[in-house]
Computed example of a mutant assay.
Amino acid sequence: MFTTYRRVLALPGALVFSMSGLVARLPISMVSLGIVLLVSTRTGSYSLAGTVSAAYLIANALFAVLQARLIDRFGQRRVLPPAVVAFAVGMTGLMTTVELDVRAPWPHLCAALSGAAMPQIGSCIRARWSHLVPDKAGLHTAFAFEAVVDETVFILGPALVTVLATTVHPLAGLTSAIVATVLGTAVLVSQRRTEPPASGGVHRHAAGPMPWPVLAPLIACAFAMGALLGGAEVATVALSDELGSKPLSGLMLAVWALGSLLSGLVTGALHLTASNASRFRWGMVALGLVMLPLPFVDAFVPLALFLFLSGFAISPTLIAGFAWIEESVPSGRLTEGIALFTTGLAAGLAPGAALVGLVVDASGASASYWVTAAAGLLGAGLAVLTRTAAVRPSPTGSSS
């Protein structure tokens, strides 16, 4: 299995840009939690902490695609440095306003600036793999490796920011997020040999039309998947609390992430003959179905078992989704296409968590898993109905 991974990681510059991407992506799982920890500690208000965190997340969702378009047009080395500077300035401003007890809307504005400028590292890394890897089998392995990196980020990031903010200093968590973003992005930008070529300032439509009959349902699937992920996290915390041990929710969520990480490793090592579209559809169906037993769970052991199984469906589905986008969108708009998918995923997290929270308050934690099951089945239905692009759009195609 590891021979398969060594083959792609041995490509010139691959290991360096992927590992720098891991470091630069750590704040994805650190900043929102770090904001809540800082603001709630300094002000005693969880509602204020929630609104400041929401300002960051909303701005990030709104501006991610715009940044990706600029990266496709002008190149990573021209867009990422000013973006990371703006992110650091926004984060520093946020920490300063909270420490000085400056009233709203200044903490919200600083959070929004940092969210809007957050470098789109995941999209950039996958675009580099698409540019560097010469064959589809190798690209499948590369995308699988990045799925494993994503899971690593979401295992390490929350633990790191929590430990630093609670045992070192309330500012330490967000400070470490700034350092990771700046250093990781700086190393990534320095890797010129693996950077995909920019379009040279040509208007984005000249790169070819977006295949919206494929892309729009995929974005909707990503939204449903995000709602499932965000909702399942809240439901798991609530159920652990009902079962008498809220701290065990961390272990349950770690088991969930472990299932996804392991399945990503295995998927990348396999030579799969099924199309990316078929694998994505089956992955969404499996993810929806494996959530169905969770509303009936009333103990930690079966909870861990079914979370592990549902986690096993996450990485292969995401790997197939990114590969489907890579083969469908124009090469000159690949970063934009990937960012659209990841933005859809991120946009579903908050609504899923909020809806599950309402059901928890009204009917209990177990019943709230019906929300995640419904989101999974909705995504499965959308995936089945999604059209398949026969070929990548021509770079000289008409405007979308």
Rank of each mutant, 00 (worst) to 15 (best):
P211V: 08
L243H: 01
G208H: 04
L265I: 15
E242P: 09
R192G: 06
S190Y: 11
L183N: 08
V168T: 07
P213D: 11
W212L: 10
L262W: 01
A177K: 11
S263A: 08
W212R: 13
P170G: 00
T185Q: 05
C221D: 10
T194W: 13
K246S: 01
L258W: 15
V182T: 07
A224L: 04
M225G: 00
A269D: 15
T181K: 02
G268Q: 04
H169F: 04
P209H: 13
S263I: 14
G201F: 05
P197W: 03
G264P: 02
L248C: 11
L171K: 14
G200P: 03
A207I: 07
L262Y: 01
S245G: 06
W256K: 04
H203V: 11
V234G: 09
L215Q: 00
M252S: 02
L188P: 02
V202I: 12
L258K: 12
G244L: 10
V234L: 14
L239I: 14
A224R: 00
A227C: 13
P170K: 01
C221G: 15
F223R: 04
T185R: 03
V255D: 03
V182P: 11
T181Q: 12
F223N: 02
P170H: 00
A172V: 01
A222V: 03
S263C: 05
L248F: 15
G230W: 12
G226R: 14
P196Y: 12
T175C: 14
S249R: 03
P196W: 09
A177T: 14
V237A: 08
S245D: 09
G231Q: 14
S249Q: 07
A186L: 14
G208I: 07
L251F: 09
E233G: 05
T181D: 02
L174P: 00
V182D: 10
V189P: 01
A257F: 06
T236P: 01
G264Y: 04
H205N: 14
A224I: 03
L239V: 14
A257L: 15
S260T: 04
G250T: 13
L258E: 10
L248A: 04
A198K: 13
G244D: 07
H203I: 12
R192Q: 01
A232H: 15
L239P: 11
G226L: 04
